[in-house]
Structure formats: C-alpha cells, structure tokens
C-alpha cells in the first residue's frame, strides 16, 4: 500500500501530467484552427521579411550578417501575433469560455496558448535560417546556442502576445494596435538595425529593458561568436521576461474575468 507521501506525489504527478496534456491540446487546437493555413504561414514569412528589407537595404552590409537580425524580428512578429488574433476571435464565438471553465489552471491555459505561438514562430523562423544557409552560406558558430536563443526568444514573445490578448475585447484590431505600440519601437532600440554601441546612452539604457535586445544579442553570438552580453546572461534575462509575462498574463486573465 503506498504511503501518504507516495500518494501525494502520485496525485501531484497525475495533476501535472493532466495540465501539460491539456495545454498541449489547446496548443494543437490553435494550430489546426488558426495557423496551419497557407495564407497565415505566407504572411508570417513575408511581413518580417519585407519589414527587414525596408530597413536593411542601403546599409551595404553583407547579406549574411543581416540574417541574425532577420531571425530575431521574425521571431518577434510571428510569435507575438498569434494569440492577439485567436483569443479575441474565441471570445467572439464564445469558445474562450469553454477554455476558461475547463478543469485546468489558468497557468496551463496561458502556457498552452503561448505554446502554439512558440511552435508557429519557430517554424516560420526556419525560413530565414534556411535562406541564410543556402543562399548566403552564412556560417553558424554555435548551433546549440542558436537553438536555445531561438526557442527562448520565440517563447518570450509568444507569452508577450498572450499577455496583450488578456485585454477583454472581441476585436482583434484593438489588441493588435496596443501590441504594435510596444513591439514596433522594440525593433529600433534592440540593436537589430542599429548596433547598441552606436546608440546614444539613453538609447542603450532603454535597450536593456527590451527582451529583443537579449534575443538578438544571443542569436548574433550564435552566428558570429561575439556579443554584447554573455549568452548566460541573455538566457537568464529572457527566462525572467518569460516568467514576468506568464504571471502578468495569468493575473490579467483572472482580473478581467471578474
């Protein structure tokens, strides 16, 4: 007969397993329902690509050196765009109530929603990665660092998107406009187009508050072997941002349902 402690541990593992399974089900549902569609995938690739071209053309930088920045903004735009679209739609058709009333924690719901944005954006970011390898033969110095950098950056911005989608509206445009007031400035202050060292001191100080700074820095390190911060510091800061966004999202979803 299992002891009380073993019984508690078993119940805890069963609970965690259920929560992970439910989060995965939410994520899979989102992918089938909203993201694995040709037009969404093409838009996910084209929007960051053209945005990047608009700022990169005329800089006379070798194409290969631009790939890390392109990957960083692709991750930013694709990961953070997912939940601000799907959650207001789900509110409108009342399927979001189904998720809110399911026997899962709010953390699992937020995690499951973010997971779909994370997977979608990783898939999309493979496009500039492959372009860099095939067309420009861009060397990657540290492949494992690149994998970690892309995963953390993607999850960080997916959670940011879930956080903004907590705003209680059924209108996708409302969430997107709020999100864009944050993420568009991020691409200018995070060293993607202008190196941080070339920015004025105030710009460099503000850059420290942007998660894209650390994601971009780590991706650049994976490609070139040089970076502003240590990759370990980048990882730590990105994890802190993920936790802040996750807990803030959890709090906001709870508050807005009161």
């Amino acid at each position: 007969m299992p002891s009380t402690e073993e019984g508690k541990a078993g119940a805890w593992f069963a609970r965690v397993s259920h929560e992970i399974s439910a989060a995965w089900a939410i994520s899979r549902k989102d992918m089938i329902t909203y993201y694995i569609k040709p037009n969404i995938i093409v838009m996910g690739i084209l929007f960051p690509f053209f945005m990047f071209l608009a700022f990169a053309i005329g800089k006379n930088a070798p194409p290969g050196t631009l790939i890390p920045g392109l990957i960083a903004i692709t991750l930013l735009f694709s990961a953070s765009s997912i939940e601000p679209v799907s959650i207001p739609i789900e509110r409108r058709v009342k399927t979001f109530d189904r998720l809110l009333s399911a026997p899962i924690s709010l953390h699992s719901l937020v995690f499951g929603e973010s997971l779909s944005g994370f997977l979608y954006s990783l898939g999309i970011a493979c496009f500039p990665l492959i372009v860099g390898i095939i067309l420009f033969a861009t060397p990657i110095e540290h492949v494992p660092v690149l994998v970690i950098a892309m995963a953390l950056t993607a999850f960080c911005f997916a959670t940011l998107g879930t956080l903004f989608a907590a705003y209680p509206t059924e209108n996708v445009g409302e969430v997107m406009s709020m999100l864009n007031t944050v993420r568009l400035p991020l691409i200018f202050i995070s060293g993607v187009f202008i190196p941080l060292s070339a920015m004025p001191q105030i710009g460099q100080d503000i850059a420290l508050l942007s998660p894209l700074t650390y994601g971009n820095d780590m991706i650049a390190y994976a490609y070139t072997g040089t970076s502003l911060f240590s990759p370990l510091l980048d990882i730590l800061v990105l994890v802190i941002f993920i936790l802040i966004f996750q807990f803030a999202a959890n709090r906001l979803y709870k508050r807005f349902n009161e």
Binding site: S21, A22, A25, V93, T95, R98, A102, P103, I104
Partner: peptide, 23 residues
C-alpha cells in the same frame, strides 16, 4: 447558451479536444 464549437475542427476533433480538457 451559444453553440461554442470549433468550426474549423471536425466533430470528432471537437469531441476529443473537449475530452482532453477534462482529463
């Protein structure tokens, strides 16, 4: 009150999704 089903999923996928949420 609203028939809150997922239009882009099949009837079977809707059922399985609901079952997964309910462990």
């Amino acid at each position: 009150e609203t028939s809150n089903v997922y239009d882009d999923l099949t009837a079977w996928q809707n059922m399985i999704f609901s079952a997964e949420l309910y462990h």
